[in-house]
Write a protein that binds this DNA or RNA. Structure first.
Lengths: 191, 191
DNA sequence: CCATAATTGCGAACAGTGTTTGCAGTTTAC
DNA sequence: GTAAACTGCAAACACTGTTCGCAATTATGG
C-alpha cells in the first residue's frame, strides 16, 4: 500500500504499525488482514513497490561499466528517497519481482563480460551494497558528531579533527569506488 | 550484559526481550532498569562489548593496505560470530568507546597515507561496509533460492542458472574487493 | 425480485512487548 | 540501633501484531 510507504517516508519504519496505516486509510486495523497475511507481508510489498522506481532500466549502450554505474546511481537515489529501505534490505523475503527484474537487467548489461556467473552474482551484491552504503552516508548525515563522548583517549581521531575541514574530494567518490570495485571483481586485471 | 549477547547469538536480536534476559539471569524484568535506562541502552552496550573483540589491533607494520585488510578481516569475523550486529550497526547510538577505538586505530594505520581526513573517513566507512557485506553473504548463505518464484520472466537470470555452477574465483574475493576499493579511495592513482 | 451464498469491514479480545510505579527487603552509615 | 540509602520485583499501563466472531454489504441464481 502506498499509504504505508507514505508513513515510512515521513516517520520511519517503526511508525508503520497496522493501526497507523489503517487509520491513514480510515479503516480498522483488523481490516488489513483481508488483504495482507501479516505485517511482514506488508513490508515485502513496500520494498517491491519501491523497487519499481528503479525502472526503466538503461539500455546497455556503450561500456557495460558505465551502464552499471548508472544503475547503481539509481539505486542509491531510491535508498535516499526511502531511507527505511535499508532496514528491509536485510530480510531475504523482500526479494520480489521488481528486485528480480533489476537483478536480471544487471545480468543483461554484464552479458559482454567474460566472467563466471558466481562472479557476476557477487559483483551485483557488491554494487548494491556500495550504493546503499553511500545512500546511508548522505541520509545519516555525518551522525558522528560524537555527541557526548570524550575523544582524548583517541589521539589520531583528535588530530584529524584539528585538521582544517578540507573539501571533499572533487571527483565523485561514489563513481570512483564503484568502478574500481567492479573492475576488480569482474576483470582479470585492468580494463 | 553477556547474557543478552548469548541470547542474541542463539536466537537473534528479536529474542532479546527484557523479560528474556531477566529470566536468563533469574531475576525480574523490572530489575534490569536499575542498571539500564532502556532496551536501546542494552543494545548499545551489546554492540560495544562485542566491538571489543576487534582488539588487539595489529601494529602498523609494513604496508598500510595490508594492515587495513587485516583489520577488515577481523571485523568480518566478528560480524560472522554475531550476525545480529548488522541490525545494530545502523543505529548511530551504537558508536561506543570500543568502536571509536577501532576507528582511531584505523586512522593510525593510515597515518602514512597522504589524503585529507574526509577521504580517510570515507575509506573507513567503506571498509566497514564491505566487511559487513561479506559477513552477511556468508551468514545468509545464498538465501536466493527463489523459493516460490517463477523465473521465466527473467531470461538472463534463467540463462545464468542453466550455466554449470563454476567454482568461486580462486583469489580471495574479499581481499581483492577491499584492496581495489581502498586504493581507489585513498590514492590519486595506482599504488 | 427475492432468497441464499459469499465476501468484506471491524470492534473486542489475546498474547506479547518496553517501561513506570510503588512497595517491601536488604544493606549501608552514623 | 536507628535512619537513610539502595536493591529486587510483582503489578499495571500503553502499545504492538494477530485472531475471532459477528454484523453489513455485495454477488449469485432461480
Amino acid at each position: 500500500m502506498t499509504a504505508a510507504i507514505a508513513i515510512a517516508d515521513a516517520d520511519g519504519l517503526a511508525a508503520v504499525s497496522m493501526r497507523a496505516v489503517a487509520a491513514q486509510l480510515k479503516t480498522g486495523a483488523a481490516s488489513l488482514y483481508r488483504y495482507l497475511s501479516s505485517r511482514d507481508d506488508l513490508l515485502d510489498l513496500m520494498a517491491d513497490r519501491v523497487a519499481a522506481e528503479l525502472r526503466p532500466y538503461p539500455e546497455p549502450d556503450g561500456d557495460w561499466l558505465d551502464t552499471l554505474v548508472r544503475m547503481a546511481r539509481a539505486q542509491r537515489a531510491v535508498h535516499e528517497r526511502h531511507p527505511w529501505l535499508f532496514e528491509l534490505s536485510q530480510r531475504a523475503s523482500a526479494i520480489g519481482p521488481e528486485a528480480l527484474g533489476f537483478f536480471d537487467a544487471c545480468l543483461k548489461v554484464m552479458a559482454p563480460v567474460d566472467a563466471p556467473f558466481a562472479a557476476k552474482f557477487e559483483a551485483i551484491g557488491m554494487m548494491n551494497g556500495v550504493a546503499i552504503l553511500f545512500a546511508r552516508k548522505r541520509t545519516a548525515g555525518e551522525s558522528l558528531t560524537f555527541v557526548g563522548l570524550d575523544v582524548t583517549p583517541y589521539p589520531h581521531l583528535l588530530a584529524a579533527f584539528r585538521q582544517p575541514a578540507a573539501a571533499p574530494p572533487a571527483t565523485d567518490l561514489f563513481e570512483r569506488a564503484l568502478r574500481s570495485l567492479l573492475r576488480g571483481l569482474l576483470t582479470p586485471d585492468g580494463s
